[in-house]
Design a protein around this nucleic acid. Sequence first.
RNA 1: GGAGAGAUGGCAGAGUGGUCGAAUGCGGCGGUCUUGAAAACCGUUGUGCCUUAACAGGCACCGGGGGUUCGAAUCCCUCUCUCUCCGCCA
Length: 426
Amino acid sequence: MLQINFIIDNKDKVLQGLKKKHFQNAEDLIEKIITLDKERKKLITQSNDIKNKINTLSKEIGDLFKSGKKEEAETLKKQSVDLKNQETEIDSSLKKTEEEINNILVLLPNIPHTSVPEGKSAEDNEVVFQYGEIPQLPENALCHWDLATQYDIIDFETGVKLTGAGFPVYKGKGAKLQRALINFFLDQATQNGYIEIEPPILVNEKSGFGTGQLPDKDGQMYYVCEDKLYLIPTAEVPITNIYREMILKEEDLPIKNCGYTPCFRREAGSYGKDVRGLNRLHQFDKVEIVQITHPEKSYQTLEEMREYVAGLLKMLELPFRTVKLCGGDMSFASALTYDMEVFSAAQKKWLEVSSVSNFETFQTNRLKCRFKDKNGKTHLTHSLNGSALALPRIVAALLENNQTEKGIKIPSVLVPYTGFEYITKH
RNA sequence: GGAGAGAUGGCAGAGUGGUCGAAUGCGGCGGUCUUGAAAACCGUUGUGCCUUAACAGGCACCGGGGGUUCGAAUCCCUCUCUCUCCGCCA
């Protein structure tokens, strides 16, 4: 959520930013919010003045009663009642005004960093880095969904039987590969200073709101009506919300956390597009990295996180590219996002396997995650996160790119985790 | 799921209608003393908002929301959470 004072002080910057994100109707809303905020301040001042008078009167009434001057007290009581009625009226308009302001604020996306490229969709993203050779596969190379069936490691149909489309069943070496990847990613993260967290995978509404999924992404999350809980779409939600309503010490920063969780996404509205095999699932595994930083350090941190994720892909020997998302393709809460895309050689497609973002104060303003500086002043921290990494598309690329006559070759860094070098037909 | 108890500042813990933003202790910070440290002593110690160029002033906050009252940490309603006992159970 944008800070209202920031909007007022940086109106043009905000409008430009919203335009870059292709947010409709920005000017009207910003004007409205500025007008409403003036109204709000006026009402607060009025209300406070009246409260001040009531407080003074009440004290006097107390004194009068003590000294037995009941009649004088009664007169003041009447005055106080009148004031109270005025206050009630002002407070109800104040409440209404605040609600209106909040309703708008909650709809406004974060404004992008100045370096974010203009553009509408994924085609306008800017490739900033590319690594590795695109493998040349033989004519008869198979896509991962065929390989998965042939090697009997992922069973999509049984997943449909158990739950529905988008809930695959991993079997044998396929299941082992999942575990290997999760452990590899967690070990790497903890070796790089991230403290491991195992959070709940159901969260309450406050948490959903804190990281910006609500109200923006309501409908994309699975919801347990009975207990009013959401299944997390990413570990970002519970991990970042750990720091909700906290005032940290400056020396505690940066906070570096990582965590493995299954992730649940309804993916409503995206049917039919790139949904084959592992490309788009309702449930998948992911290791997430989260950092809470000093505002001056967040962009440096973002680059470090991007490098870190790139390092993982290099270790896995996967060809990848890094793209800087354009304004139109960025998420609601992000100020700058890098996507990491792995080339899946049989599908001949770049698949997004990680998204690394700086949210600046957009999340922390909602979360009320602050720190105290040396002078004792509090400021909002910045929050960042990145996938490191999401499994399904990594598996897709590994299967497709590493298919050989001997079987699927496992990258050497993973062998200590899998205990086998090849996935073979039995 | 049933029964009971409770939620107060960083922590512990007083406070049951008026001068309580809140005693006291611990912790934290600053100082005195000391060669240095400890002890002792003195001072200080929350968050948000509004007015103000600033100095300063005001308002709100004792789990959340609502109510009674001239006046609520204190009374009433409601929600949430925690603890204890019983039941069930990985």
